[in-house]
């Protein structure tokens, strides 16, 4: 079974968790993601930036009242890449080459 076929950007624990959460919810704030994934601020920022650079998610910064709020939104490309990643895993589990 060849993990080389898996999308390398997604194939990392925190980024996979990030993409899974966003695939389920569409968009999540920084605070929500931190709570779901139980990661540090820095770790979340670094991995989100990798996904943003690959255009798998979009980062929106705004103000909620006087507090800044960062929201992560999965892109169409991100949805497709995540679906392909899942399909690839299932194929590998089924033993298809």
């Amino acid at each position: 079974m060849n993990p080389e076929r898996l999308d390398k950007v997604i194939h990392e624990r925190v980024r996979l968790a990030l993409m899974s959460a966003l695939a389920a919810r569409g968009s999540l704030t920084f605070g929500e993601l931190k709570e779901i994934l139980t990661v540090t601020d820095g770790n979340l920022s670094v991995h989100a930036t990798v996904l943003e650079n690959a255009r798998l998610l979009r980062i929106k910064k705004e103000f909620a009242g006087r507090k800044p709020r960062t929201t992560f939104i999965i892109t169409e490309k991100g949805r497709q890449a995540f679906a392909r990643y899942l399909a690839e895993l299932e194929k590998m589990l089924a033993g298809e080459s």
Partner: peptide
């Protein structure tokens, strides 16, 4: 990747997706 690893990965994805649909506010 071993089949157990792949199954574990799929389980992790499922759990994370489930956790993200919890409302805690």
């Amino acid at each position: 990747m071993e089949p157990q690893e792949i199954a574990g990965e799929l389980q992790f994805i499922k759990q994370t997706m489930w956790a993200s649909t919890r409302y805690t506010n």
